[in-house]
């Protein structure tokens, strides 16, 4: 690995080590009780001690978030293509896609929990927040095709299907992948919000429910441990999608090409 690459990994790790050390020192120096701020060792202890419970919950939340993400990715790309091909459908439906996006998911979740079984409600929330970024970005990408390339395809009598699959979709890939990257993080947020809403009703076993439950029991170390797992899951989703984007675009798109200087 290049020295620059090492630095990019080492610097955040050094910062993390410093932050943990300061945290630990502060907790000791001011004798802060664990039910207000547990030290890092206590959080790690809880993570290991409650690992069965926490990782089980992580699996529940992550599965629902990923299912919601997958549905949003497929649905978002599908509807973007439909909107692109049939303008009247776009005019009819796009405003409602915007409504779906701008209505805060926290406000919808309780309603969904009334109408749907809990895991479906969580899935729906994950889907709702992840759908729009994919739709909006893919729509933008399908529209931002080089006009001259469109003329070229017309000159060679390309069919509508050829224009879509060989011109518009490849041209839309960078924006589509950017949309997916945003949607990945949002689907986790959507799932967590729905779980919190459900959790207060006393049902559920996802990670967000663990956080709410630990809060009621003043088990602050476990709260931190669950929060840590959620963050790591979010980071992992982001990294996987970034890697995917890099793999797809590295040969041709400016955003992923390394400049030789």
């Amino acid at each position: 690995m290049s020295p620059r690459g090492l630095v990019r990994i080492a610097l955040p790790l050094v910062l993390l080590a410093v932050a943990v050390a300061v945290w630990d020192a502060a907790v000791r120096a001011f004798a802060i009780p664990p039910y207000i701020l547990p030290g890092p060792a206590l959080v790690m202890g809880s993570l290991v001690g409650d690992s069965g419970l926490l990782f089980g919950s992580l699996a529940v939340t992550l599965t629902l978030a990923l299912e919601g993400f997958a549905l949003a990715a497929i649905g978002g790309v599908f509807w973007a293509i439909v909107f692109n091909q049939w303008r009247l459908i776009e005019y009819s439906f796009y405003p409602y896609a915007v409504v779906l996006q701008v209505t805060p998911v926290v406000a919808i979740a309780p309603l969904l929990l009334i109408y749907l079984p809990q895991h479906l409600a969580v899935l729906a929330c994950a889907w709702i927040v992840a759908f729009f970024p994919v739709l909006a970005n893919t729509t933008l990408g399908l529209r931002s095709v080089d006009r001259n390339l469109v003329a070229l395809f017309e000159l060679y009598k390309a069919s509508r299907w050829q224009v879509l699959t060989r011109l518009k979709l490849p041209a839309a890939l960078p924006q589509m992948l950017a949309g997916l990257r945003i949607a990945g993080g949002l689907s986790l947020i959507g799932a967590v919000v729905a779980e919190i809403a459900a959790g207060s009703a006393g049902a559920g076993s996802g990670l967000a429910y663990r956080i709410a439950e630990s809060g009621y029991r003043l088990n602050i170390p476990r709260m931190f441990a669950a929060l840590l797992l959620l963050s790591l899951a979010g980071v992992a989703i982001f990294m996987v999608l970034s890697a995917l984007s890099h793999l797809v675009l590295r040969r041709w798109h400016e955003s992923e090409v390394k400049e030789d200087r």
């Binding site: 001259n148 003329a151 000159l155 490849p170 041209a171 798109h253």
Partner: peptide, 12 residues
């Protein structure tokens, strides 16, 4: 037809 710009598909 040759356009003013190269008009190539960057992904190909």
């Amino acid at each position: 037809f040759v356009f003013q710009e190269p008009t190539l598909m960057p992904w190909a």
